[in-house]
């Protein structure tokens, strides 16, 4: 397993610990999907799929693919026991109405005020926001799962986002391979750092101002 994959797994594991028993959670495509693999066995968490069900399960084997059960990326998946199907209007009523406990999404940029940019790079990548804007505006807790810096090694946690926003002031928690950061009214609080890093390294790789929590923990 390469370094990149290990980083992703570390992020997924930390986020998986965050959910309370009985939570309903929506995972974005890409890295957030990994979180489903690390839910502690003593907790029940049900996953919401924006296209219309609660109880998103793993990929089926080839012989049991059902064309009427796909995830938000259009890939065949399964529904777990205790799940339920509904239409798009209901699905987004669940999202916007505050009935979703957590949403986990990737990010291009996040800033000190909890603003999030993750849906477009003008002139380069304009795929559309899909359900992301509704998820971020509606879920009770918004968790960002991302690498701490971009592929050029530049900070992604900024004083102010430069890319078009997905939502304003809605992010609650940022988890990277280096840090667990909580967004508060006073700014970003560094609550935990990874086992193989230092506060100095985290600050060096972060443009936004970080307040270090008094009882800083490691993960």
């Amino acid at each position: 397993m390469d370094d990149k994959e290990l980083k992703r797994i570390r992020i997924a594991k930390r986020i998986a610990k965050e959910f309370k028993d009985g939570s309903i959670v929506n995972l974005g495509i890409g890295m957030p999907t990994l979180v489903a693999n690390y839910i502690p066995s003593d907790k029940q968490v049900l996953f919401h799929s924006e296209n219309g069900f609660i109880g998103l399960g793993p990929e089926p084997d080839k012989n049991s693919i059902d064309k009427d059960i796909v995830n938000a990326g259009g890939k065949p998946v399964t529904i777990v026991k205790g799940g339920c199907f509904f239409d798009s209007s209901m699905s987004f009523s669940i999202i916007r109405g505050g009935h979703l406990d957590y949403t986990v999404l990737g990010a291009l940029e996040v800033d000190e005020e909890g603003n999030l940019a993750n849906y477009m790079i003008p002139g380069k990548m304009v795929p559309g926001m899909g359900g992301a804007m509704d998820l971020v505006a509606g879920a009770r807790n918004v968790i960002i799962a991302m690498e701490h810096t971009n592929k050029n090694g530049e900070p992604k946690i900024l004083k102010k986002c430069t890319l078009p926003l997905t939502a304003k002031g809605e992010v609650d928690i940022i988890v990277t391979e280096l840090a667990f950061i909580r967004v508060t009214k006073k700014g970003l609080v560094l609550e935990e750092i990874a086992e193989d890093t230092t506060v100095e390294e985290v600050i060096k790789n972060t443009q936004a101002r970080l307040e270090v929590a008094g009882n800083l923990k490691r993960f």
Partner: peptide, 25 residues
């Protein structure tokens, strides 16, 4: 936004003059 798209369509079918949503603010 997907939820807005769904509710705009539903509003038309339900005879509503529009909807108010926090999405996109």
């Amino acid at each position: 936004p997907q939820g807005t798209l769904a509710e705009r369509i539903r509003a038309k079918g339900a005879g509503l003059g529009g909807i108010l949503t926090p999405t996109g603010v």
